[in-house]
């Protein structure tokens, strides 16, 4: 920061005022952890507009898939039927279990 042209006295005054306010006021998002619900935190409130905009994009795509292509549910996708008919046989088949399922590992 350029402090040329500010006398030593003025600078000290500013610094003093700054220190006092520092000790009383925290900035908007600092340590915002008391709220249990993210959507009620200051960060959460700021994020809402973005979340809603992107959410409506996803539901718009849901409507397109249903209206234009008649697929509301996953099994209605003819390519899914083809995948199982030509390759994976049926959900939870031996092949499905080996390629599409997994296991987990405790990390303690």
């Amino acid at each position: 920061m350029d402090i040329k042209g500010v006398s030593r006295r003025t600078f000290l005054k500013l610094a003093g005022a700054g220190l006092i306010t520092l000790s009383f006021t925290k900035p908007t998002f600092a340590g915002d952890t008391k709220e249990k619900n993210f959507f009620e935190t200051k960060v959460g409130k700021e994020r809402l507009k973005l979340i809603k905009a992107r959410q409506s994009g996803q539901y718009k795509d849901d409507v397109i898939s249903r209206e234009k292509f008649n697929m509301a549910a996953s099994h209605e996708n003819p390519m899914i039927k083809r995948f199982y008919t030509e390759f994976a046989h049926h959900p939870l088949s031996e092949l499905s279990e080996s390629l599409l399922h997994t296991h987990y590992k405790a990390r303690v």
């Binding site: 996803q58 697929m71 996708n77």
Partner: peptide, 22 residues
């Protein structure tokens, strides 16, 4: 145009995976 093509075609249920509850 979206058409019945392998690995591209998808349902409404699939696309809402991106949002909570989907």
């Amino acid at each position: 145009s979206r058409k019945p093509e392998m690995f591209k075609f998808y349902s409404g249920g699939a696309t809402i995976f991106g949002t909570s509850g989907g």
